[in-house]
Simulated assay, not measured.
Amino acid sequence: MIDITDFSKKQMIFIFPLRGDKLSFKNDNVIVKDKDGKIKHQSTCYRLFVIFIVGDITITSGIIRRAKKFGFSICMMTQSMKLYEIIGSRMEGNTELRKKQYEYNSIDLGKNIIINKISNQRIALNKIRNKNEYTKEVIKKLDEHKLKLKSRDFELTELLGVEGSAARIYFSQIYNKVDWKGRKPRIKYDYINTTLDIGYNLLFNIIDSILQVYGFDVYYGVLHKCFYMRKSLVCDIMEPFRPIIDLKIRKSINLGQCKKEDFEFINNQWLLNFKKSTEYVSFFMEAILEYREEIFKYIQGYYRCFMKQKYAEEFPVFKLK
């Protein structure tokens, strides 16, 4: 099983193929060729952790065998960066881990995940320069939400209610310099919500890939209820890491990297112009890769604690820098 030393040397590659592009291999190297056979990209299989392919491409059967042999995954995504298939390396036979997953029936881990998330939301708001009085008040309210969660036991619906309350006041301030009308996932209500969906989707896919390395049943979570074809555990694990994306978007708006003009309004949805996809993936991956080791260590620690059936308080905590 991969460890942090190996993981830190691994590469995550994004490919945005054009019509006629082909993914193949040569001498233990992954190669992307255009329709004329010209090499556009080449990477050694020994250093690959995951390849994300955004759009349509031709894949040879040989590259699938290499993915299994060298232990990397190929994540297939639509042009809107929605994951629809993972090919290659994944550990599906960790039956002891999955047995422990299915037997776990406490809300304690879920509560700790939410407390960790609110802590990082607080850190994100504290990074804002020249905070106004309302932002300072929201930071105090987030502290109150954390204390409330720590003070007693909660039912799942109550826990999610506290999380939702914290999220509403947090988002109102993390995007207080723009015309923010609320978080509305997946309906692409405005360009900021669409950008959040893109960033969260990239973070989701990376966490999904690492969880599958350890053999987790990613459909079985501790906070999000099991629902048909929803990767509930991935949704759980990414919660404390969401502020990485939130903060990056705020900075990118301030720097002019993320702007309304990059999007098109089609069928009542704000969609990113595909020509801008590489730029957006680049600044999101810059933020995510800054925390790549922390993300890996968190999941590694989560795995070890789950296997040893430790108390919720002993599970890992992620802290935003």
Rank of each mutant, 00 (worst) to 15 (best):
N112E: 08
I113S: 09
I113E: 02
I113D: 02
I114E: 00
I115K: 10
N116H: 10
K117R: 06
S119C: 12
S119N: 14
N120Q: 08
Q121F: 01
R122C: 07
R122M: 08
R122L: 10
R122P: 04
A124S: 09
A124W: 02
L125S: 04
N130S: 13
N132W: 00
E133C: 03
Y134L: 14
T135W: 03
T135E: 12
V138Q: 00
I139N: 04
K140S: 13
L142Y: 03
L142K: 08
D143C: 08
K146C: 09
K146M: 09
L147D: 07
K148G: 09
R152G: 05
D153F: 07
D153Q: 08
D153P: 00
F154S: 04
L156F: 06
T157H: 02
E158V: 02
L160P: 05
V162D: 03
G164E: 09
A166D: 09
A166T: 04
A167T: 13
A167P: 11
R168L: 09
R168H: 15
I169L: 14
Y170G: 13
F171H: 10
F171E: 04
Q173P: 13
Q173D: 12
Q173S: 14
I174N: 12
I174G: 14
K177H: 13
V178P: 03
D179F: 14
D179T: 15
W180C: 12
K181I: 15
G182Q: 03
K184M: 11
P185H: 02
P185Q: 05
P185G: 12
K188H: 10
K188Q: 05
K188Y: 12
Y189K: 11
Y189H: 14
Y189P: 09
Y189N: 15
D190A: 09
D190C: 09
Y191H: 12
I192E: 07
I192Y: 07
I192Q: 01
N193F: 11
N193E: 02
T195E: 05
T195C: 13
L196S: 07
L196M: 10
L196V: 11
D197T: 01
I198D: 01
I198T: 06
I198M: 08
I198P: 05
G199A: 03
G199D: 02
Y200R: 01
N201E: 12
N201G: 15
L203H: 01
F204S: 04
F204P: 05
N205M: 01
N205K: 00
N205F: 02
I207M: 05
I207A: 06
D208L: 11
D208I: 01
L211T: 11
L211E: 07
Q212L: 14
Y214T: 02
Y214I: 05
G215D: 00
F216W: 06
F216R: 03
F216C: 07
V218K: 04
Y219I: 06
Y220N: 08
G221Y: 09
V222F: 00
L223M: 04
L223F: 10
C226V: 15
C226A: 14
R230S: 04
R230A: 07
R230C: 07
R230V: 05
K231P: 00
K231E: 11
L233K: 02
V234S: 08
